[in-house]
């Protein structure tokens, strides 16, 4: 066979070494989804309280996104309120946005689930409030 090390006395090390590495790896595996692309900025901002309901919710990330696997949604209580056309901007692949219908007053939650070009997934969310004389039903 090709591999010189195989079957020789010195090959005692590899299995053990491999085991050690394996255990080390398993012991320290990251749990859940960690951020690779990081949310840098948003509009409306997190916790913002706006009188004029926004027409779009926009997110800016630290890295470029893959349009096919990057999406966001806006929720009021448990109802999805956005128009469902979340898209990554053509000019700046770090920007994701979704159109909103006229919103009533209330608390809204923005959620995102994005894939950055490094092949890693990140997700998160935040809320904002529409207050004052806005939306008539």
């Amino acid at each position: 066979m090709v591999m010189a090390a195989r079957g020789r006395p010195s090959s005692e090390i590899p299995p053990r070494l491999a085991l050690c590495i394996g255990l080390l790896v398993l012991a320290a595996l990251p749990a859940g989804v960690e951020a690779h692309a990081v949310l840098v900025r948003s509009a409306p901002e997190a916790r913002a309280s706006v009188r004029v309901p926004p027409r779009r919710a926009q997110l800016w990330f630290s890295e470029r996104l893959e349009p096919a696997y990057s999406t966001m949604s806006v929720w009021n209580d448990r109802t999805k309120v956005d128009s469902g056309d979340a898209e990554v901007s053509r000019e700046d692949a770090r920007q994701l946005s979704v159109a909103l219908p006229p919103l009533d007053r209330g608390v809204y939650v923005v959620k995102y689930h994005v894939l950055s070009v490094d092949g890693h997934v990140a997700e998160g969310g935040y809320s904002f409030t529409v207050k004052g004389e806005a939306g008539r039903k």
Binding site: A43, P44, E45, A48, V50, R51, V52, P54, R56
Partner: peptide, 14 residues
């Protein structure tokens, strides 16, 4: 900071 004028959507200093 973010600011809005009349009925237009908000902008930010940044």
């Amino acid at each position: 900071f973010s600011y809005a004028v009349g009925p237009s959507p908000a902008h930010s200093l940044r």
